[in-house]
Amino acid sequence: MASGALVIAILALAFAEAFAGDPKPLQDFCVADLKSPVFVNGLVCKDPKLAMPEDFFFSGLDKPGNTNNRVGSNVTLVNAAMLPGLNTLGVSIARIDYAPYGLNPPHTHPRATEILTVIEGSLYVGFVTSNPNKFFAKTLHKGDVFVFPQGLIHFQFNVGDINAVAMSGFNSQNPGVITIADAVFGSKPPISDDVLMKAFQVGKEIIEELKAQFK
């Protein structure tokens, strides 16, 4: 009986994992109440009788983002916090601008798969699988589409000498982002030098130099 119960428990966990994702709506919509002090897994709904067309509207993705930064890229994300009507619908969108040879650095989205479409320019893109860390890469041009599986490290690099633009869709109202270099070398409080020295097999001077770039 114990082994049978264990099998059932394992199957239940497997099914729960397979269907994990953003909460599904139990009504037509659940417009986020961005002023609510209540903290839940997601965003609190406001009374649907108070919903307005503006709750389902966002303007501005036609405008270029500022790429005058150290990596030469800018992400304009429209998630449920920016567009309250997205709450519980499990989708979001982003515009990504790249200066010539600009980079959207290696990062992950812990809660979403990303599908990217190149609008202007050419991008070299890629992602790395979990062990054994196989690398998939492709050079994309205007109109090309590429998908980055949920949780995997990926990047986009503008290989041209003109500005590039891409649009990305996500299957989460809040995909989240973990930029690898920022997380490892710029965390607060910082990760111990001893840990990073051991992990990267380099000396303390190199670790301190890298950390200085992300203060």
Rank of each mutant, 00 (worst) to 15 (best):
I178R: 06
L83N: 09
L103R: 04
G186Q: 06
L61M: 13
L89I: 08
P190F: 09
D144C: 04
K198N: 14
N69G: 09
A183I: 04
P84M: 13
N87E: 10
A80K: 01
T76M: 13
G126P: 04
A80R: 03
G90Q: 10
N131G: 04
L116T: 13
F135T: 14
H141E: 12
V177T: 15
V91L: 15
G85D: 04
T108P: 03
Q156K: 02
E120Y: 09
V71C: 09
N158A: 09
I162W: 02
T76K: 13
L196Q: 11
N104T: 03
F146Q: 00
D97W: 07
Y98E: 11
P190D: 06
N158I: 07
D62S: 15
N131P: 14
V125K: 03
N158G: 06
V145F: 03
G90Y: 08
I115P: 02
F135S: 10
S168C: 10
D182I: 07
V71P: 01
T108Y: 00
S130Y: 03
I180F: 13
P132T: 10
F127S: 01
P190W: 08
N66K: 14
S187P: 02
T139E: 14
K63P: 00
V159L: 09
L103N: 10
I162Y: 08
A164S: 15
I191F: 15
K138G: 08
I178W: 02
I180H: 05
A137Y: 09
L140C: 01
